[in-house]
């Protein structure tokens, strides 16, 4: 009797293991074809020179792609750009997103409208955002220059996207417009974890707005800050669409990003091996930041 039940238990356990593997087989197959195979492929390809067409023309060149990549002034440009982009989009989005979340807590008239309005750009295609901002930046009848002329600031009028000094900032502004609503939502969720009593205690205390913001709200949102910052970093490493649509990396390479260099190398210059070296570095960075985020999430769940 005892033997039989332990036997059927073993059978049940086997069935459970088998079901587990069956349930995850489709996702593993798809990721296998599109991601894991691709990963091995680009790591290998990054050691070759190849125009991306005939397999016979592949030529082993060791680490030369990486050496070229580190020596190329365009890589330095792309790195500086992506860092500037990261720092400014993340900080402005955090600040604005938190302000929005706090203001909407007041539940004044129109709160739902404002919340929806701030979130709308998140739901739009980057293509729509890019065209929207091209309409603002257009040098002759664009809204921005028209406005500047209207208020008598003609000196500030310029070809915003065509000027290497302003193009990157135009891209940064468009990205902030697109994604601040998402950060707002994270902060709205984060604020619900701070108990109302704490706010009230601060009010009885007579803590002013800025003081309670600095001493209660900001530190109480630790996990939200982490999420917002890491998502911002991961998103920055990937940034391609908005740059490609607004400037294609120009004018004169002033707004190159790692992803635009990669796309140009592979799709325009037939440098598949060199592009693969850029891929490998981007993948390494993305996975690294994801690992950091997963560690934080785990810590939070355990705490």
């Amino acid at each position: 009797m005892k033997k039989k039940s332990s036997g059927s238990l073993l059978k049940m356990k086997k069935a459970e293991t088998l079901s587990g593997y069956l349930f995850v087989t489709p996702i593993m197959l798809l990721l296998g074809v599109f991601v894991f195979y691709g990963l091995f492929y680009v790591i290998r390809l990054s050691l070759f020179k190849w125009n991306g067409l005939l397999p016979e023309t592949m030529e082993f060149r060791g680490l030369k792609n990486y050496i070229l990549l580190f020596q190329d002034p365009l890589s330095a440009r792309a790195l500086i750009n992506v860092l500037l982009f990261m720092v400014f989009t993340v900080t402005v989005q955090m600040f604005l997103g938190l302000i929005m979340a706090l203001l909407l807590r007041s539940k004044l008239k129109g709160s739902r409208f404002f919340r929806a309005l701030f979130y709308i750009p998140v739901t739009l295609s980057t293509v729509v955002i890019a065209q929207t901002f091209m309409g603002l930046y257009e040098p002759y009848f664009g809204l921005l220059n028209t406005f500047l002329r209207g208020v008598g600031l003609d000196g500030l009028v310029r070809t915003w996207l065509g000027d290497p000094r302003t193009a990157l900032w135009c891209i940064i502004a468009a990205n902030i417009f697109q994604w601040t609503g998402a950060q707002m939502v994270y902060y709205i969720a984060g604020l619900t974890t701070i108990s109302e009593d704490v706010f009230e205690a601060a009010q009885i205390d007579g803590a002013g707005f800025w003081r309670s913001l600095g001493s209660i709200v900001w530190p109480g949102l630790g996990p939200t800050h982490t999420t917002v910052i890491i998502l911002g970093i991961v998103g920055s490493v990937k940034t391609f669409d908005i740059v490609w649509l607004l400037t294609e990396g120009g004018p004169g390479n002033a707004t190159q990003f790692p992803a635009t260099l990669l796309y140009q190398a592979v799709a325009r210059n037939s440098q598949a091996g060199y592009g693969a070296a850029i891929s490998v570095i981007m993948i390494a960075l993305s996975v690294m930041f994801s690992a950091v985020q997963l560690t934080f999430n785990k810590k939070r769940q355990e705490a």
Partner: peptide, 18 residues
Amino acid sequence: MLTMSISMLCFITPLFQT
């Protein structure tokens, strides 16, 4: 989860070949 943050663009050549 680790694959979540990787851009599809990184696999442009292998995806194209596939």
